[in-house]
């Protein structure tokens, strides 16, 4: 049976949520927390969203959406335009490529995967910015930022999983 207009609209709205949730993470990332030194080490929330959806529902998070999130992140954070877009796209690409490997594996494996990909992404971003800037930039806060991001992954992944079970239809 052909779905009615409202059913299709409903489906469309639900399918849009992975992108919308990642966008919300992007905005949350920009809110000043008023904790000394926190802004520099604040976890890179959008990266968690991108990796999660790349592994579990890449059909709902196309590369163009990842690109858009990256560009918006660059605009908001004051980084050179394109840096985060490139980094997020690489995270997305690796997540996508490894998703058949993650299929059916326990969550710990996916988390370890995120740690590896995240380490690569932060190092990549640091390298690119060092090249753009012409000398090696201080990376201590990036290191802490990476630690916090990796630590926060299970919490957000749990929320996303619940969201997926409740609102998103299977592929």
């Amino acid at each position: 049976m052909r779905p009615s207009f409202w059913q299709r609209l409903d489906r469309f709205a639900r399918d849009l949520t992975p992108f919308a949730l990642t966008f919300v993470l992007l905005v949350i990332n920009a809110v000043p927390m008023q904790i000394p030194g926190f802004a520099q080490v604040a976890p890179l929330l959008p990266m968690i969203g991108i990796y999660f959806w790349a592994v579990y529902r890449p059909d709902l998070m196309p590369a163009a959406a990842v690109f858009l999130i990256g560009i918006l992140h660059d605009f908001l954070s004051g980084l050179p335009v394109g840096v985060s877009a490139l980094t997020f796209l690489l995270v997305y690409g690796v997540g996508m490529a490894q998703r058949t490997f993650f299929f059916g594996k326990s969550f710990i494996i996916v988390w370890i995967g995120f740690m590896l990909v995240g380490a690569g992404a932060v190092t990549f971003e640091w390298l690119v910015l060092s090249v753009v800037n012409g000398n090696l930039i201080e990376a201590r806060s990036a290191f802490y930022q990476y630690g916090l991001t990796a630590a926060l992954f299970p919490i957000l992944a749990w929320l996303f999983t619940r969201w997926q079970q409740t609102f998103l239809q299977v592929e």
């Binding site: 920009a30 927390m33 802004a39 004051g78 990036a142």
Partner: peptide, 15 residues
Amino acid sequence: RVIGDAGGAFARTLI
């Protein structure tokens, strides 16, 4: 008022 602090580890800007 400072309403945004999105710099992260590699940029130091406020909105």
